[in-house]
Design a binder for these strands. Structure first.
Lengths: 200, 200, 200, 200
DNA sequence: AATGAATGAGCATTCATTCAT
DNA sequence: TATGAATGAATGCTCATTCAT
């Protein structure tokens, strides 16, 4: 029989998922490799079979998880044809997503401010910037499409998209400080109304 | 206040100001006490004459600097009577402030996510939450006052205030990722328009 | 001997030979078991089927290879009857040998100084000391035989044998530092002349 | 009063001396920084105030100690005018030196074979090669001077010097294996006679 | 027997904090 | 009060060894 075999990608994903959560909860600097190992139910050394260093693990974890999250979120919007409906759904989906991955903004900020993420052949911060641009582009496209259809008015699509994304991201902050500072339901309602009063 | 006390306070402020900047630029975990000492032109040991630990220094630095910044910012608004004008100015002042102290959001998020800030007799995160609540209260008061005067419409004042603060805070994020992701001027314009279309 | 035993011995020798070379080139501490496995074209785990530990492998490798090398070298001298000729040949053969296994002295010294070699039921360093004594004894016998035949003069045979061996071993050192520090041809000539001027 | 002050060079020398001895006794790889710290009566961290890394410490220790040893040894020879006497003294001094620093050859070999010593701005192995060349040059000069004075005969001075140095260095090897393999007194006598029969 | 994935003890190094001056 | 040398706990990472297949 063949010796022990592993599905490398599955294992990497196991590690990445746990690393992502532990990093998110405790911050990068405050997370020990052994914490991640424990969370993943493996040993410290094993992590190093799949990732060169803590930094690489962070980078890969952010890259992978942000990608997965975005894919999942955008997937939900794909089917919706109506411009208004789609924008409305975008707001709700993303506010939900950010509740799920509470703390990710903090992790990102720590990663950025401590110049982590210069890993491997990736350009520094590029995929982060990429994820951001991606989100903005999606929103921008939605707004533009709505305008083309005559549902939305003509505005500075790009900047408006940025603001919309920032509104939602920004909500992470009070939420992180103390989750009772903000009532997500009410917030969603206000964001929605604010956005629609603006775009229409 | 005795001259002695003044001296002590002056020194504390010297340390705090430098600590704040170094923390903001490099993140908490990435900052060494010796970096702060060097920035302040004193020796490492001296810091410990004024602050018990790195954590306390962070807490005091955030507390003090956030307070100073808010005071300064709110001071500028005090004089303005007109509700609309005041709200408009609020947006511009705070977007300016956050450019000045770029990175502070990252520091806050790091501090929060790594459970720093549980220092001494302060309740955890209380002054951060306090600062946040303070900002929100100010905005809320502005909106409410405007409504009372019949300039603004009746809305969910509290939640709206939160969203407004989050829009501005949220802009820190793309700015931190890569300062050319966002054009502050245009952003201010859109934020302003969005807010006014909403409140009026 | 059963075919089974032959197989085992063949495999052990495969591992030993490769281990010897890798150890010699990189030093003991600097050699990973995986390096040896790779050199031998087998897997890491397999080594442990034949050797208890890295230390045992080193010990066995040194023991076996030194033995083989000595056998081969002494074999070449066996046939020579003439005392002078034999001594001359000894010098050349051993200087050649040490060029072939450059670095072995370093490995020995490392092994000795780090108290490796205390393996299993072997007495510490005994076979190393044994190999050394063996070499010295051979030379001593040559000198003594030459004296008996009236070709060499009466000297302190034992100590002289030691010195002769040390001269040749000692040449390994500059050779290891930088192979261009010493011209082997010229060195052989001088050693030969020095020895013959002494023994005659 | 001024704060605690140290004589940096004295402290470095304290560390270097202890490091040299511990390295010499146990080998580089087998020596923990804490061993050195303990030997020097200081803490691990303190070593890093004076040396960047274990490798740098090894390099500096070898460089410094070899230099000191050579200076001391050559100093003893300086006064001696007579060529024969000086050469004789050289042999005895160096055989004594190598007894004092028994194991240094092993350390050197380990350092060389594991490519340690590439530290800082020093060229790899250069000072080791330098120390070797220095020793050889001294001997060569002695032989040449003796020949000039008509006391020694004309020989291949350079190669002869190498051989002489190697004889003495080579004695380190059996001595390291088991100090009773070689009787230093007798060895010195034989070396002396062998050398003098050769050079005269 | 052979494999190579998994383990975890071990160690170099960093840096917040202390303390002698 | 101020200093900066000294400390040692803490942690990333390596690699000999084990073990499931």
């Amino acid at each position: 029989m063949s010796p022990r075999t592993v599905d490398v990608d599955r294992k990497k994903l196991l590690i990445i998922g746990n690393a992502f959560n532990v990093f998110r909860e405790n911050g990068y600097a405050n997370t020990k490799m052994s914490d991640i190992a424990e969370a993943a139910g493996i040993s410290k050394g094993t992590i190093y079979l799949y990732f060169k260093s803590k930094e690489e693990l962070l980078a890969k974890a952010l890259e992978t998880m942000l990608h997965l999250i975005q894919e999942k979120a955008y997937g939900q919007l794909e089917a919706i044809q109506d411009s208004e409906e789609r924008l409305r759904e975008f707001i709700h989906v993303f506010m939900g997503v950010f509740q799920e991955v509470a703390g990710v903004i903090g992790l990102l900020m720590e990663a950025i401010s401590s110049d982590r993420l210069k890993v491997g052949d990736m350009e520094e911060r590029s995929y982060l910037a990429g994820a951001y641009r991606n989100a903005i582009n999606r929103v921008e496209a939605m707004l533009r499409e709505g305008a083309r259809r005559g549902v939305f008015r003509e505005i500075d699509f790009h900047t408006s998209a940025i603001i919309l994304v920032c509104m939602i991201d920004g909500l992470q902050i009070p939420y992180a400080i103390s989750s009772d500072l903000v009532d997500i339901e009410k917030a969603a309602k206000v964001v929605e109304e604010m956005v629609f009063r603006f775009v229409k």
